[in-house]
């Protein structure tokens, strides 16, 4: 198979959609938070927590969906901590976010080591299995690429639709968007900006937790150290790339994942000539490139990273 033929194989696109799934959850989570005016750099750590919490629940005999729920709750708990520190207390969102990432990740690793003091091979669970959508999965090419995925992947796409509907079609979504653009206008409506922002960060962090859990419950079947591996940071770049819009962010995540899936296959093809590290660098380099390209047109939520204090201009 040559490099061009690869592009038209359904398995490539099936892999792309699989790779995109955790990024979609994480990107949507960060997007909600930033639309409300709060940068959440805790994302990398929150995904780590979600990956472990979800997996551990299932390992203890819980149902897979219970694992997803626990991952969301664990993620939102750390999101709440971040929100309290940066919204009402107005601490630096950069420093606090990095602190949350370090805190959440180290706490996860400590708990893991406490639960499994000495393991030679990581304990495994039975992860989500692919579920073929009736009829649709029989369509040539698209059936294999799109409709033979695990349930969490379908959930990622549903989540993107729901977040878009919520932000643009509901009064609460309007409040979230306005809190990130012009918080004083939200206050003028008699809505508490602090509450809106905290809820947005907490909800977003729940999605980040599920994004992490995708790795342990769907993509793999075990928890590894450093398994999030920068996906949180990539999600932050994808939010900018998607101009803070759920639909564009979804497309960005898919594009990114397609590229990632493609490079994985190229690696097998050209691995003899090009060091594998070059391929592994590509996703990170691509994220930086995307940021540079989009930066000219980036329209940040105007109140992003600006703490709101009642009565202050």
């Amino acid at each position: 198979m040559d490099a061009l033929e690869l592009l038209f194989s359904a398995s490539l696109w099936a892999a792309a959609i699989r790779i995109a799934s955790p990024l979609i959850f994480a990107t949507l989570g960060e997007l909600i938070s930033e639309r409300a005016g709060v940068l959440n750099l805790g994302i990398e750590g929150i995904m780590t927590v979600g990956a472990f919490a979800g997996w551990f629940t299932v390992y203890q005999g819980g149902d897979l969906w219970l694992g997803v729920l626990v991952a969301a709750l664990a993620g939102s708990a750390f999101g709440l901590l971040h929100a309290i520190l940066v919204v009402p207390l107005g601490l630096s969102q950069h420093v606090t976010g990095i602190g949350i990432t370090l805190f959440a990740a180290s706490l996860t690793y400590y708990t893991y080591r406490l639960a499994f003091p000495e393991v030679t091979s990581p304990p495994k669970i039975e992860p989500f299995q692919p579920w073929a959508v009736p009829v649709l999965s029989d369509i040539p090419f698209f059936g294999e690429a799109l409709f033979r995925q695990t349930p969490l992947t379908y959930l990622a796409f549903i989540a993107a639709g729901l977040v878009g509907w919520f932000l643009y079609r509901t009064p609460a979504g309007l409040a979230v968007r306005t809190a990130g653009e012009n918080p004083a206008a939200v206050e003028a409506q008699g809505i508490d900006v602090t509450k809106v922002r905290i809820l947005a960060v907490v909800a977003g962090s729940a999605l980040m937790g599920i994004g992490g859990a995708f790795l342990t419950l769907s993509a793999f079947n075990s928890f590894y150290f450093e398994m999030v591996n920068g996906r949180g940071w990539i999600a932050i770049a994808l939010v900018v790339f998607g101009s803070w819009r759920p639909g564009k962010a979804l497309l960005g995540a898919l594009l990114f994942a397609a590229f990632d899936a493609y490079q994985l296959r190229l690696q097998q093809l050209a691995g003899a000539f090009v060091p594998y590290q070059i391929f592994l660098m590509l996703p990170y380099a691509l994220s930086i490139l995307a940021l540079i390209i989009m930066s000219r047109r980036a329209s940040y939520p105007r109140a992003l990273m600006i703490p709101y204090r009642k009565g202050e201009r």
Binding site: L41, H94, N229, G230, W233, I234, I236, A237, V240, P275, Q277, I278, L280, M281, Y284, A285, S287, I288, L291, I292, S295, R296, A298
Partner: peptide
């Protein structure tokens, strides 16, 4: 430079660069 010239957030670029450099060192 990307920050002052293009307004690219340096938090994300420096974080991503950590991964790139580690891979570069491995290479």
């Amino acid at each position: 430079f990307l920050k002052v010239r293009f307004g690219v957030d340096e938090v994300v670029t420096t974080l991503l660069l950590n991964f790139i450099v580690i891979l570069f060192v491995s290479l």
